[in-house]
């Protein structure tokens, strides 16, 4: 269908459509809880290469991403905590990487990773650089991790003198990471809104169907209010996402603030809708058989992938302050 390469330029094997179209696809991916390595490959790896890759790197990787021949990911985190240059301990020296990354989304099935590594010790952002590592090559050990979301894997990747190719200039890594995270925040927010909407629909459908006290439970005001609150949070999130999509697709200066707002709003909406959907389903919501738990799991896992809610809350206020001061 060309979904993977929708935002990749035609010269690199994509459809060259743009990020607006990618947002539409992201929403449907989220609605369906698609168990595919789409976000890791497309929102993270491809975006990093689009931003920082040389022409040769784009020629090498983007057509494979667009055709589905290569699965990529971003190896950023190293255990607990949120995105921060200080937390990056993996080292890059003489063209090889050493250290451990976890969790790495879809790391167990990825062919390559964009890896954030330390190339300096000044204590500043400019200590961080990016590298592309072939995960099928020597010096790479991959271990699957158990995680909340059953539809998307997480892995621990150990590098022992793994060969690495620089992506972008030395010391520019953190600035690229920040841009990638902002873009991925908008795209992921669309996945979250898709998931929130689906959880709301499931709750509504169940409420119309389920009879208790001789009436559909959807006729009880307490249930109506639960559903109305879900609709409100999903709608506010969608509106924030549309603004984010505009900022992303036009590369507007408002992107950092818009991305943080979309991220926070969509995270809250998905968690809220997935949680209330379980409540509306009563005992059924507690079972394996009904999909409620799948949405609940995704809502809680996807809330952490790019940094937690409190991380993005902090980022939003920082960005608003900067704008205010300007």
């Amino acid at each position: 269908m060309g979904f993977l390469g929708v935002a990749i330029p035609e010269q690199f094997g994509g459809a060259g459509a743009g990020h607006l179209e990618l947002c539409v696809i992201a929403e449907e991916m989220g609605r369906a809880l698609a168990p595919v390595p789409f976000s890791s490959t497309v929102y993270l790896a491809a975006e990093a290469i689009l931003i920082a890759g040389s022409d040769a790197q784009k020629q090498k990787w983007l057509p494979k991403i667009a055709s589905g021949d290569a699965i990529g990911t971003l190896a950023l985190f190293e255990g607990k905590g949120n995105p921060s240059p200080k937390a990056v301990k993996v080292t890059a020296n003489g063209g090889v990487l050493n250290g451990v990354k976890k969790p790495v989304p879809d790391g167990a099935i990825a062919d390559f990773a964009v890896v954030a590594a330390r190339t300096g010790s000044s204590g500043r952002e400019s200590d961080i650089s990016l590298f592309i590592v072939d995960l099928k090559a020597g010096g790479v050990e991959v271990k699957s991790l158990t995680n909340i979301d059953l539809t998307r894997g997480q892995a621990e990747i150990t590098f022992k003198d793994a060969k690495a190719e620089p992506l972008g200039a030395t010391g520019e890594g953190w600035s690229v990471i920040t841009q990638v995270l902002d873009r991925a925040a908008v795209l992921t927010a669309f996945e979250q809104v898709g998931g929130a909407d689906r959880a709301l629909e499931m709750g509504r459908d169940y409420a119309l169907d389920r009879i208790a006290f001789g009436r559909p439970i959807g006729s009880f005001q307490a249930v109506k209010h639960m559903l109305a609150d879900m609709y409100v949070s999903a709608t506010l999130a969608r509106s924030n996402c549309y603004y984010g999509a505009w900022a992303l697709s036009t590369n507007a200066g408002e992107l950092p603030e818009a991305a943080a707002a979309a991220r926070i709003s969509a995270t809250q909406a998905f968690q809220h809708c997935a949680k209330n959907n379980i409540q509306v389903h009563g005992g059924m919501g507690f079972t394996w058989e009904f999909d409620c738990h799948m949405y609940y799991r995704r809502a809680n896992a996807v809330a952490l992938g790019l940094g937690s809610l409190s991380y993005w809350e902090d980022a939003l206020i920082d960005r608003m302050r900067k704008k205010n001061a300007a």
Partner: peptide, 12 residues
């Protein structure tokens, strides 16, 4: 931040 996204959500 929580109120910021409500306010921007309402605006949009």
């Amino acid at each position: 931040a929580n109120w910021a996204v409500k306010a921007s959500g309402l605006k949009y």
